[in-house]
Amino acid sequence: MLLRKWEVLVSWYEERRNKSFRDNEEPDSFPLDGLKLDLEHLLSLFNRITILNRKSQAQDANQVEVLLAFFHVWLKTLQLGQKLDHYNSTREKRIYIEKLTPLAKFTRAMLYQTMQTNFFSRYTDQAKITQRPFIFECQMMLHPRLKNLETLSNVVRISNQHLGRQFADANRIAGEVCQQVKRHVWESMLSVVSEQGHDQQATQPEPQPEHFQLASAPTSVFS
């Protein structure tokens, strides 16, 4: 990793610079000089996003876990008012970045706005709330640990509060989203039951007519 070799690179370029002076040549400057802090903050910003991408693209990706990781990135990593986990931070030793560089701050704001527009607006836009099928959220409801939708409700409420809505309004919208998810799950279950009943009916053999013998034709009175 570039940042882990930073001091070595700086020393190497410094030695080249000194050699250039001794040889009366134009010195080569370190092309990333003055950008170490930007790189540290950007790497810390993209670290969680990289983990999310790796999780979502795995062959055995669990969609519920991916959705939870997505929530975490948006609520923790990309929130402008939140301190950022340093890329060297561990569970045993937490390291935070309190103030981002202008470049990292701008990048964070753009990523946040993009996620808000492309995904999280499904929790804040009334038209989208009534139109979206909420497939990912339906999978969450079928998860044994998340079936009460408390996690989803909190995310929806916080999403609306970030837009300046009062707690009561945000809480009401969270309830609407959860009701929509429950409705979609219920309709899906009814659809499955209906299809299974139709399939069973279709596979049942049709009743066969009873075998019978034709009676002998009556003797004509004219014979």
Rank of each mutant, 00 (worst) to 15 (best):
M1G: 15
M1N: 11
L2P: 04
L3W: 02
R4G: 13
W6E: 13
V8P: 01
E15V: 09
R16S: 01
R16T: 00
N18F: 06
S20K: 08
F21L: 14
D23N: 12
E26C: 04
P27H: 07
D28H: 09
D28V: 05
P31Q: 05
L32I: 01
D33F: 04
D33S: 11
D33Q: 12
G34F: 08
L35E: 13
L35G: 04
H41R: 06
L42C: 13
L43D: 12
F46A: 12
F46T: 07
F46C: 13
I51E: 07
R54M: 13
S56N: 04
A61E: 08
N62M: 07
V64N: 03
L68N: 03
F70S: 02
H72W: 12
V73F: 05
W74T: 02
W74H: 12
W74G: 00
L75H: 09
L78A: 02
Q79P: 02
G81A: 05
K83V: 11
L84Q: 03
D85I: 02
N88C: 04
S89W: 04
S89T: 08
T90Q: 14
R91E: 14
E92F: 06
R94V: 10
Y96P: 02
E98F: 15
K99Q: 14
P102E: 08
L103N: 01
K105D: 10
R108S: 07
R108Y: 08
A109T: 12
L111E: 01
Q113P: 01
T117A: 15
F120E: 00
F120Q: 00
F120V: 01
R122K: 15
Y123T: 03
A127W: 06
I129Y: 01
Q131M: 13
P133I: 06
F134P: 02
F136Y: 14
C138N: 02
M141G: 00
L142F: 02
L142V: 03
L142Q: 11
H143G: 00
H143N: 09
P144F: 09
R145D: 05
N148K: 08
N148C: 02
N148S: 10
L149F: 04
L152Y: 03
S153E: 05
S159L: 00
S159P: 00
L163E: 12
L163T: 03
R165W: 11
Q166W: 11
F167C: 10
A168G: 08
A170R: 06
N171L: 07
I173L: 10
Q179F: 09
Q180R: 15
K182F: 06
K182D: 07
R183A: 10
R183I: 04
W186A: 09
E187V: 05
S188N: 07
M189C: 10
L190K: 11
V192N: 06
Q196K: 07
Q201P: 00
T203F: 11
Q204G: 01
P207H: 06
P207Y: 03
Q208Y: 03
P209H: 01
E210K: 05
E210N: 04
L214G: 12
A217M: 11
P218R: 05
F222R: 13
F222E: 14
S223V: 12
